[in-house]
Design a protein around this nucleic acid. Sequence first.
DNA 1: CTGTTAGCGCGTTCAG
DNA 2: CTGAACGCGCTAACAG
Lengths: 343, 343
Amino acid sequence: MAVTIDDVARTAGVSTATVSRALRGLPHVHERTRAVVHRTASDLGYVPSKSAATLATGRTRTVGVLTPHVAKWWFAQAIEALEDELRASGYDLLLLAVPRAAAGRRPAFDPEQLRQRVDAVAVLSVPLTGGELDGLRRLHLPLAFLGASVSGAMSVRVDDVGVGRTATEHLLALGHIRIGHIGGDPEEAWNVHAFVDRRAGWMSALRAAGLSPDHDLDVSGALTVAGGRAAMSGLLALEQPPTAVFVASDEMAFGALTAVRDAGLRTPQDVSVVGVDDHELAELFGLTTVRQSVEEQGRAAARMLLSTLAGTPAHSNEHLLLPTTLLQRVTTGPGARAVLPDR
Amino acid sequence: MAVTIDDVARTAGVSTATVSRALRGLPHVHERTRAVVHRTASDLGYVPSKSAATLATGRTRTVGVLTPHVAKWWFAQAIEALEDELRASGYDLLLLAVPRAAAGRRPAFDPEQLRQRVDAVAVLSVPLTGGELDGLRRLHLPLAFLGASVSGAMSVRVDDVGVGRTATEHLLALGHIRIGHIGGDPEEAWNVHAFVDRRAGWMSALRAAGLSPDHDLDVSGALTVAGGRAAMSGLLALEQPPTAVFVASDEMAFGALTAVRDAGLRTPQDVSVVGVDDHELAELFGLTTVRQSVEEQGRAAARMLLSTLAGTPAHSNEHLLLPTTLLQRVTTGPGARAVLPDR
DNA sequence: CTGTTAGCGCGTTCAG
DNA sequence: CTGAACGCGCTAACAG
């Protein structure tokens, strides 16, 4: 059916070994022969069989990408960047969505299924159980984590504690005292690390300013617009609502802004809101946020994996921390209540 | 290195053929033998080599997904649905982003590279050149288009002409006469079909109402928030601005709403806006929109492909049209200017 | 119901 | 610089 390397060899009048060498750019092939082989290969429309090559070499030229979501902003961005970088180096991207939680607890993911299917694995903020992580390690494949770091594997992420601290310090600098926090619901089993860290940053900044975090102002919600909205509603309903809130993701922050509007209040006069991500719609909302470049994280992770695959073992245990930037827009300000002494 | 089928055969005391049959659930295997094989396979941690199976059968159990974008809402939704449905049937998803336009014209995509790598292809609103389409057809693989339909291949989409008509009729029913249209820039090379159709629906509805579409009110922009914002700004700057606008995607509609706000106007009092998609943030904006379920389209396409692969040739040339629904929220209404006779 | 055997298409020694 | 021959791990006849 399909044209094989033998067909090319035969019509080019050389052996299959020569075709293989010529086409893969290996040395020890006369330029004339190489040219002939290239020509007849393209004349015949020869496409090497990937599976045959894999079977022969053990290498798949495929990278597995493990993700809990594909349509969520952060993940989609990361996947796009990974795909672009991998394809540029001739690698295929095998997309593997880790099954959703059926009833709270998702079926254990079996890393063994990746054996002999990929040369490396990128893990996108998937909260793996210890067993799953061990299984992944047992594969002895280059492993890169995005948005989390795990000992003994490469990782690319931002300093999430720093993110929380930056956002909170911004609010403190504006004169706010009652600063709330809306984090990701720990029940939702993804990206936990990031949200735990961001919360820690919030607390740390408050403490450094001599304030003690108020339990009532520390809430969490689903990592969605609706979750942020509900959480903010709760905060605003408090007897002493916060004058500023650090929301641990832009999507939740959008919801929080809606809750502010619903309550008949305004930002930043009545309450300041700062998010994290710089989601593409953040500018639309005028949302002040701590920007992270997911695209760069994705590309960096891909390059780490690729260079490890290329035999540069330098990265094999590297933990890369990418910078973040506070983007001040219009949802944060001194605020009327913050300026007036309220004691 | 890895444990092979021979290892299993040997330690189970049977032949490789029996192991193969037993593990794949083929008939003509004694239940006792099957049980033994299963046990020793799992004891040994046997994982079949996919490439060996592919080489032997010619089938890859992989479906290629061709997409121009992965992080855009519509595409991410579709990919997620496809992945879920494919994985449920044991198929891998090979993600292939068609390279972006370098300078307007992207490098031709070569479908031959898919040969021997996938069993079927899903094409997500990629505007293919005739040559590319022919190349894809020459693969003789099951082909499913999402968001567009092409003769001689399966497709799943919504009735985009109907979408444009529905949105426009809604506006007409509210009493609007000067109804604008913001479409996708034809220069942007994706999803063109859908945007052409939606525009046609707009025109058709106007004509059916005895109105003739006003050229000044028919604009287009980049398929982004910024694009919609710019386009709407232009419309509002007109001497006789529209009192209602049909925006061909929610993302653009978000931008349009911003432009309305920027101009010191309000929806729906000053201008009504209706979008398309029901983007996850549409509710937040109170945006009236024509909803389409991308997830269902993705699942349907996957199932068509899968059943064709399973040998049910019923679908081989099926064109599925999924329903859409007008979701009336708060960005559309009679509007002050529409109600007052303006002659 | 089970075993034997011959490929699938390529990479890779090892000779020349 | 080039060719011959083997093996990667599995499936699919064909025998039995």
